[in-house]
Simulated assay, not measured.
Amino acid sequence: MSQPAEKPAAVEPVLLRRDSNGIATLTLNRPAQRNSLSEALMAALSDELKLIAEDKTVRVVVIAANGPAFSAGHDLKEMTARRQDEDRGRRYYQNIMRQCSALMQSIVRLPKPVIARVHGIATAAGCQLVASCDLAIAAEGTRFATPGVNIGLFCSTPMVALSRNLSRKHAMEMLLLGEMIDAARAAEFGLINKVVPADQLDSAVLDFAGKIASKSALTVSIGKEAFYEQLEKGLAEAYDYASDAMVKNMLARDAEEGIGAFIEKRDPKWEDR
């Protein structure tokens, strides 16, 4: 008598989402691969961010990770396998780099703040992911690196995010030495905002996220967009742009309400318009 066929094991999703009190937590879920950024994981993260961009119930995003590491960067095994392609992987590598670059830019352009909840290690494109987020909080013991130079593959795309967060000397130190730095040093460099004991990581992230979620979503959206736009402009052009942003903001209902509440010494009632 033949035995019934075993049901195939359920495939775990590479990305998990949980929403609570206006905070969407996206959790990288490839713990056995140290949450390396595979094609599938980057696609899932990009798709979820697109949905969140239009979701008015979400006011803040947290990017977290399951397992012992935040993210070890690109999936090098996945990438190396494509060297067998007729073009030695050229087209595939071009697509992967475009996909990763688009993902990082989508975080910057998302009209809601994004907080990285970091633990374990964040290396190469994983470090790039941390640098691309608006804020980052790390547990004590977390280590960061852009170690590509050690394996003959300079971290050129992570360099874009690093060089927009760190001083030039600190960015080049990480890129040229390829060595791990601890969380305290990462905070000194400006890569992360805060270092906390591991058992306080969730509460520290929730504290940041909760405070942001209590603000006018429209005001925060205007401010985040203006912050990144003015960074790329010359001084005079940046002031012109920021002045226009403030006029737009001043004419919004929430600015009128917030200023009125301040003058009248009461709590504002946001309508996000």
Rank of each mutant, 00 (worst) to 15 (best):
P197T: 10
P197I: 12
A198P: 00
A198V: 08
A198L: 05
D199I: 04
D199M: 10
Q200Y: 07
D202S: 07
S203A: 15
S203Q: 15
A204D: 10
A204I: 12
A204Y: 06
A204S: 15
A204E: 11
V205S: 06
V205F: 04
V205W: 04
V205N: 02
V205D: 06
L206H: 14
L206T: 15
F208P: 00
F208S: 00
A209K: 02
A209W: 01
G210C: 09
G210K: 06
K211A: 15
K211S: 12
K211G: 05
K211Y: 09
K211D: 10
I212M: 06
A213T: 06
A213G: 08
S214K: 14
S214E: 15
K215I: 12
K215N: 14
K215Y: 12
S216I: 11
S216N: 08
S216G: 11
S216M: 12
S216F: 04
A217E: 00
A217T: 00
A217M: 01
A217K: 05
A217P: 01
L218F: 13
L218H: 08
T219R: 05
T219P: 00
T219W: 05
T219D: 02
V220I: 07
V220N: 01
V220K: 03
V220P: 02
V220G: 00
S221L: 01
I222D: 07
I222F: 03
G223P: 01
G223D: 03
G223V: 09
G223H: 00
K224C: 04
K224N: 09
E225C: 03
A226L: 05
A226M: 09
F227Q: 11
F227H: 10
Y228R: 00
Y228W: 07
Y228E: 11
Y228N: 06
Y228Q: 03
Q230M: 13
Q230S: 15
Q230N: 12
Q230C: 12
L231K: 13
L231I: 10
L231S: 09
E232Y: 01
E232L: 09
K233P: 00
K233W: 06
G234C: 03
G234M: 04
G234P: 00
G234Y: 03
L235C: 07
L235T: 14
L235F: 11
A236N: 08
A236C: 05
A236I: 14
E237F: 00
E237W: 03
E237A: 13
E237T: 11
A238C: 07
A238G: 11
A238K: 02
A238S: 14
A238R: 02
A238N: 05
Y239S: 12
Y239G: 05
D240K: 08
D240M: 09
D240E: 11
